[in-house]
């Protein structure tokens, strides 16, 4: 089965800034794919290129194994950066324009407005909408032709906590219908809660890619302390399940391989004749890990 989206060595430069640098990723059918990165890391530029509104300098991409065309666009619903509508037209009128472009019957408008909770405001003009309502209208427009793929660029940007929760729920609900979702976000927490796969971008460069569980698993950090730290380090060097360790004042911080815990460390130390004075386990935050990835 062909991938939903395959990007090969895509590059884009704005003046002196390399916005996207030889980016290659693949999005599989049915996944919720997160593009994660700080502001200005090239997420929107990447999505803009695959949505046919930004011209790539180099590289290529295919949707459903084909180059971008009217046919592929019909199978994609997308919102990029900001909700773009005619401010003087009502929600309904704006949706009718989208329906005409996508070649969908107007009868499809009411259900999607209902889904995003805007059916009461369908006759209000767009310029009077709050940011959250604009965002939800954009999601409704993206859903209009019942697309196989949904591309959402920062969909919770500018929403209040309730709105954020609603949008996330909506995304998960849509995903259970078997749709593929590509979601760009600078919020780690959002990607971790919603996505199945993630690509981490910084300054246009791909730093890590894979299932969220392997890229963003919260690993425990173990700290040990003993009177004789030199001896502790000696033992640690011989332990196969210790990924890395470093001395920080009178404590040694270790990162363990998956499946091992502080108990194994304690046991090994005891067997080596070292009695630990201190053994602490601290959950390493996602943020810390994320910062580690993007600092590489």
């Amino acid at each position: 089965m062909a991938d939903i989206l395959e990007i090969n060595n895509l590059s884009k430069r704005y003046g002196g800034i390399q916005a996207v640098d030889r980016l290659s990723i693949r999005v599989e059918r049915g996944s919720i794919y997160g593009l994660l990165g700080p502001n200005g890391s090239g997420k929107t530029t990447t999505l803009g290129m695959v949505l046919d509104v930004i011209r790539p300098d180099a590289g290529s991409f295919t949707w459903f194994g084909q180059p971008v065309s009217r046919d592929t666009k019909r199978r994609i619903g997308a919102l990029l950066e900001t909700p773009n509508f005619y401010p003087y037209l009502s929600a309904q009128k704006n949706m009718e324009i989208v329906a005409d472009i996508k070649g969908v019957d107007y009868s499809g408008i009411a259900p999607v407005l209902q889904l995003v909770g805007l059916e009461q405001r369908r006759q209000s003009s767009f310029k009077g909408f709050s940011l959250g309502m604009k965002q939800r209208l954009a999601i409704a427009a993206a859903l209009l032709n019942n697309p196989e793929v949904l591309v959402l660029d920062e969909p919770t940007n500018g929403l209040d906590p309730e709105g954020i929760a609603e949008v996330r729920e909506l995304v998960l609900k849509i995903a259970t219908e078997g749709k593929t979702i590509i979601l760009a976000s600078h919020l780690l927490d959002e990607v971790e809660k919603v996505c199945t796969h993630v690509a981490v971008l910084t300054r246009g460069v791909l730093r890590a890619e894979g299932p969220v569980s392997t890229i963003l698993s919260p690993k425990d950090q173990v700290m040990v302390g003993a009177p004789d730290t030199a001896r502790v380090q000696e033992v640690l060097q011989q332990l196969p399940f210790v990924e890395s360790f470093r001395q920080e004042r009178d404590l040694v911080h270790l990162t363990l391989q998956d499946g091992y815990s502080s108990m194994d460390v304690n046991k090994a130390m005891f067997e080596a004749g070292v009695v630990l004075a201190q053994l602490t386990v601290r959950r390493k935050s996602l943020e810390a890990q994320f910062l580690e990835i993007i600092k590489q």
Partner: peptide, 18 residues
């Protein structure tokens, strides 16, 4: 120029127009 201001040229291309 309205279409540029409202960024609707972009949205129309995303939605399927060439």
């Amino acid at each position: 120029s309205d279409e540029y201001t409202f960024r609707t040229l972009r949205q129309q291309v995303i939605n399927g127009l060439s």
